[in-house]
C-alpha cells in the first residue's frame, strides 16, 4: 500500500482558508489501512471542518481513489453538490489527490483540490492497525533473486549492492540503531539457504534510467514506457 500520515490540522485549515464550501474525499484503499483517510476519518474531518465554520457538502471515501473509474463512480451521484464546492479536500495519497483533480477536470469543473495527508511511500503491513515498513522502491529491475529476498536498494540506507558499509554495530544499521543492517540480514539469509557464494558476484551499478520519472505503465502490453 501507499503509506500516509495526516498533515497537522492547522496546515489543512490554512490550505482551506479562503474556501467556504468544501467536499471531503478519502480513500477506502491504502488510506483506510493507514487509518488516515478511510470512511471513519473523512467523517471525523468533516466534523472538524464544520467546527471551523466550513460548510461540508459531502464526505465520502471511494473504494480506491487512485483508480479514475472508482473515484468517478463515487462522485457521480454527488455531481450537483460538487458543482457548488469552493474546494475539495482529499484524504488520500498524492496519487489519489491527482486522480481526484483529473476526475473533477473531466466534469469540466475548475475546483481547487487540496491534500490533507503526507504520502510516505510503498509500505507493507506487518501488524494490522499498528505497523507497516518500507521494503521496495519499485526500482524497475528487481534483484531479490540475488539477495535472498531482502532488498538492499530499500532496506540498506545507502542502497549498497555489493555488501555492507563498515558501520553496522551489533547487527544494527549505522543510520538507525533500531533497525537491522540489511546486509547482515541478507548474509544470514544466504547462509541459511546455503547460497553465500552468490554474494561474491560483483553487482553492477543499478540502471536508474528504469526509475526515471514519471514512469508510464502500459498495462495491456505489460511494460513500462
Amino acid at each position: 500500500m501507499i503509506g500516509t500520515t495526516p498533515k497537522p490540522f492547522e496546515e489543512i485549515s490554512r490550505a482551506l482558508e479562503n474556501y467556504e464550501k468544501v467536499a471531503v474525499i478519502g480513500c477506502d484503499g491504502c488510506a483506510k489501512v493507514c487509518m488516515t483517510g478511510g470512511s471513519d476519518q473523512v467523517v471525523e474531518m468533516a466534523e472538524k471542518l464544520k467546527e471551523k465554520g466550513k460548510t461540508v457538502l459531502f464526505a465520502l471515501s471511494p473504494e480506491r481513489t487512485c483508480y479514475v473509474g472508482k473515484t468517478k463512480t463515487a462522485l457521480d451521484p454527488h455531481l450537483d453538490k460538487l458543482k457548488s464546492a469552493d474546494a475539495v479536500l482529499v484524504l488520500g495519497c498524492g496519487g489519489a489527490v491527482q486522480i481526484t483533480r483529473k476526475v473533477i477536470e473531466d466534469y469540466d469543473l475548475t475546483i481547487p483540490v487540496k491534500v490533507g495527508l503526507d504520502s510516505v511511500g510503498h509500505m507493507d503491513t506487518l501488524i494490522m492497525g499498528e505497523l507497516a515498513i518500507e521494503q521496495c522502491q519499485e526500482c524497475g529491475e528487481c534483484i531479490l533473486n540475488e539477495t535472498g529476498g531482502i532488498c538492499p536498494v530499500t532496506k540498506c540506507a545507502k542502497s549498497l549492492l555489493n555488501g555492507p558499509c563498515g558501520g553496522a554495530q551489533d547487527g544494527k544499521c549505522e543510520v538507525d540503531s533500531e533497525r537491522y543492517c540489511a546486509w547482515i540480514l541478507i548474509y544470514n539469509r544466504m547462509a541459511a539457504l546455503g547460497e553465500l557464494d552468490k554474494l561474491r558476484r560483483f553487482m553492477a551499478p543499478k540502471d536508474y534510467s528504469k526509475m526515471a520519472k514519471p514512469r508510464r505503465l502500459n498495462i495491456k502490453e505489460r511494460r513500462v514506457e
Binding site: 540506507a157 542502497s159 555489493n162 563498515g166 549505522e174 560483483f202 553487482m203
Partner: peptide, 27 residues
C-alpha cells in the same frame, strides 16, 4: 569509500546520492 550517511552531518535534509557503491567506484 561509501561515505557516512547524510543524516549524521550538518545538512540532515540533503538528498543522499549513493548512486554507486565503493566496490563499483573502485571498478
Amino acid at each position: 569509500l561509501t561515505g557516512d550517511y547524510t543524516s549524521l552531518g550538518d545538512h540532515k535534509s540533503a538528498k543522499s546520492v549513493f548512486d554507486i557503491d565503493s566496490v563499483q567506484l573502485l571498478k
